[in-house]
Design a protein around this nucleic acid. Structure first.
Lengths: 222, 222
DNA sequence: ATTTTCAATATTGGATCCAAAATATGGAGA
DNA sequence: TCTCCATATTTTGGATCCAATATTGAAAAT
């Protein structure tokens, strides 16, 4: 084994911190709107503030945290308008990705999608929210990566990151998990038949459900 | 006057460095592919490496520079495929921005667009490449900002930044400058009549010309 | 002559320390 | 009691120093 318990540790401290921060935000340990106290966080992660600050700069670029000079960083909060905007942009970009990907899909690609879907179903059945989020993401990104447009895929990833803090709420509900599984099956079916139109349509529905659910969940805070 | 010659200096060193790096890249002083020697650059800009590295992290997030752990930063190079990809994504996002913006356009907005266009024409006539790039950008961003989708506008800005290093080549040619002026007039005309379809169409043409021109200019390097 | 090894050097990554700014605290005056 | 101002404390921004990694060059072995 590679010495430390929680998976292999990245080769630089900033990458380690970056991964930790992402987890903290997506799992909700760092709540949206919460100020980020550099000194405390650095000590907690056993690094100095330098790599922490570089990691925060990366997250700022991705929109996960906000920054103001001499005031510091806060976990980004998404208003309902922000959320709708993110999903609208995703709709545009993901449609493009799917339309480019479908004609290029190999059988091996489809196999990988099926495998990812199996993981999703397992996690959904087990009620494992974190595993569900991971597997769900793998499913979609596997598809998007097939478009052969790396920059497009990266943009989509960033947009997903932006709403990660809210996604876990969504998977907390068993009904939502069940629905996600069904919707994925519909998408997978369309992909097997190489129907871009249908795949796009099923994914649009998928997103719209997520937005609707989050809209009912959120209004408490913004 | 506010002490130093070249405009007001930002309140933090990283912001100053960030602005300087952008200029260096867009003007071509730092060529695509060139490695970034932190020590030398820091000394040249009279700052330590810490703010320089934070600025580089920001640029990495925007795709203007690439980074590899323990190897450092390089000015990003765009292959023709990359370039086409960026312009395709811009097409998608800018169409959305324009369609949202047009119904919301006030007369004051149109006035601001006209003003920006005047700047473009002045710069084009004077053959001032840098001013041309600045004014051109202002023209388009003024329009996109009217969509009332700040995240969308930010994404588009980032995509523009990505190709900034190559844009100056484009404006170097007088014929291109003349054509840009004409195309802007067509867009402006469509906007005055609040025709989203036509505005989108003219902008598509505008972009396609840029891509075609860059395609003939680039193949030397990638 | 070519390849391999190992040391010397250059460059990046990170920790500590100090400076600057913002925020919190407390007291004086109205 | 409330407001305002001066001061203390906290927090961020930046510089310097040291450590870790990568790169280069030269010498030795094949």
């Amino acid at each position: 084994m590679s010495s430390d318990g929680a998976g292999r540790r990245p080769p630089t401290a900033q990458q380690f911190v970056l991964a930790e921060l992402r987890r903290a935000i997506t799992t909700g340990r760092l709540r949206p709107g919460a100020p980020i106290r550099q000194d405390a966080l650095a000590e907690e992660l056993q690094v100095s503030r330098v790599p922490l600050r570089e990691a925060l700069k990366t997250l700022e670029g991705e929109g996960l945290v906000t920054y103001k000079a001499h005031k510091g960083y806060c976990v980004a909060t998404l208003s309902l308008d922000d959320l709708r905007e993110v999903y609208r942009i995703r709709e545009l970009l993901e449609e493009e990705a799917v339309r480019r990907a479908v004609p290029r899909l190999t059988d091996a690609d489809v196999d990988r999608l099926e495998a990812a879907q199996s993981d999703v179903e397992r996690a959904a059945a087990a009620g494992d929210v974190l595993a569900m989020a991971t597997a769900n993401r793998l499913f979609h990104m596997t598809l998007f990566d097939c478009a052969g447009m790396p920059r497009l895929a990266r943009l989509i990833r960033t947009l997903w990151d932006t709403t990660d803090a809210y996604r876990s709420m969504y998977y907390g509900d068993g009904g939502n998990r069940e629905r996600v599984v069904k919707e994925h099956r519909a998408t997978l079916d369309a992909l097997r038949r190489r129907s871009a139109d249908e795949a796009v349509a099923t994914l649009d529905v998928h997103r719209d459900h997520a937005v609707a659910e989050l809209e009912s969940l959120l209004p408490a805070s913004p």
